[in-house]
Structure formats: C-alpha cells, structure tokens
Simulated assay, not measured.
Amino acid sequence: MKKVLLLLANGFEAVEASVFTDVIGWNETDGDGSTKLVTVGLREKLKCTFNFTVIPEMLINEVNVDEFDALAIPGGFEEAGFYEDAYSEDFLNIIREFDKAGKIIASICVGALPLGKSGVLVNRNATTYNLNNGIRQRELAEFKVNVLPDEPIVIDKNIITSYNPSTAFPVAFKLLEMLTSEENCNKVKCKMGF
C-alpha cells in the first residue's frame, strides 16, 4: 500500500485538499487499490479558508516519514492564517524530510511557497499562484527558485507545483500516475467521469 500524507495548514483551501482525498480514495475503491491517504495537521482542528472545519487523522509530531510514499500540500489564504502553519519549522521540516528521501511532493497553488521557504526548490523549476499581478510568483523567486510563470504545472524531479486552483485535479491525477501507472490513472479518471 502506498501512503500519501496530506499536510494541511490552518487556512488551507478545501477544494485543493479535496482533490487529493478524492483521487486517492477513488483509486483505493475503483482503481488498483494500492493507495491510502492520511490527513495531518499541526492542530487538532483546522479551519480552512472559508470556515470549513477539518479534524486531521494525525498531528505532525506523530508522523514517521518512512511510512509514507508521497506528500501532498494544498494552498490557502494568507487572510485565513495559512502561512502561520505553512511557514512553521515543523511544517517545513516534513517537506525537507520527504525531499531528502526523494519522495514525491505535490503542491497546488501557494502550497509551493512553503516548499520554497523550506529550501527544497533552490535552483529548481517551479510555479505558484499566477494571478494578482504575480506577487506570489515573485515571492517564490525570492527563495532562489526558477519560476516558470506561464506553466500551469511544473514537475522538477520529485516535486510537482502548479499555478492556481484550476490545476487541482490535474496535479492529483499526476500524483496518482506517479504512484501507480498511467494506465491505472486513466482508469480512475474514467470512473470519475473525466
């Protein structure tokens, strides 16, 4: 069984998290059955961007990175406190551990910013939220990241980044493909109506 750690910061965007739970969940029931997703946070209750409340299955201090095959990080809103959790040392250290082990890391939208802050994207290609005059892409570049501003999804070795919520399903499907196979991913897409 391949396990995905869905790392949630307070203030995360529910839609960006839900694509990972759904795609990995659909694979568990209607695909090859080889994946499982575990939600993890820094707090016992997390409030997403628009006040939806989530109780993670594990707290970050309980995580053993060796038990997981991939890390998924949805973005969130600064106004909802996203960066308070996403820029914390505990959050950044999980990212570093996954990258050091060469495990897949998939992020959506500003989920790339904690990757940049952690240092795992130094001199690597990536992207992040592309609207609002490119302010978030400039922030990512400040972490010595080679930002590809016009690419919706950027894959550099083991890391997937994307530029806004519209890329959520494609990123989740790419993660599933990397964990299983293109054939299996296409099967799940069909089952989900894509």
Rank of each mutant, 00 (worst) to 15 (best):
A80W: 04
D90V: 01
P56I: 12
A101H: 07
V54C: 12
V15L: 15
A17N: 07
E57G: 11
E67I: 02
T29H: 15
D90W: 05
N27M: 09
V23M: 05
N27E: 13
V40C: 13
V63F: 09
D85W: 03
G81P: 09
T29K: 14
S34A: 13
E28Y: 09
E67V: 01
S34G: 10
F82S: 03
K103L: 00
Y83G: 07
D85T: 08
E97M: 11
V40N: 00
W26V: 11
N51Q: 14
V40D: 01
K47A: 11
F68D: 00
N51M: 10
F52D: 02
C48V: 03
V40T: 06
A72R: 02
G75K: 07
E78L: 15
T49P: 02
V23F: 10
L37E: 00
S88F: 03
E16R: 07
A86Y: 05
E84S: 07
D30L: 15
F20T: 05
I24H: 06
F68K: 00
N27W: 07
N61I: 05
D66P: 04
N61H: 15
D32R: 05
V38Y: 07
T29G: 11
P74Y: 04
F82K: 00
E89F: 06
G33V: 11
Y87H: 15
F82T: 04
I60T: 08
N27T: 14
N51S: 15
G81Q: 06
E97D: 14
F52H: 08
T39N: 06
C48Q: 03
N93Y: 04
L71D: 00
I73K: 06
K47F: 09
L59W: 13
T49G: 14
E67T: 04
L59N: 14
L42Q: 02
G75P: 05
Y83K: 14
T21V: 15
V38A: 09
A80C: 09
R43K: 14
A80G: 09
G31S: 12
A70K: 01
G31W: 01
K45P: 01
R43G: 04
L59V: 13
L37I: 12
V63S: 06
L59Q: 15
N93F: 08
V15I: 15
L92W: 12
E78Y: 12
L92G: 11
N27S: 12
K45C: 04
S34P: 01
S18G: 14
A86L: 14
G25H: 09
K45H: 05
E97F: 08
V38F: 06
L46C: 11
E16Y: 04
A80K: 05
C48N: 13
D30Y: 13
A101I: 00
S88D: 09
R96I: 10
M58K: 15
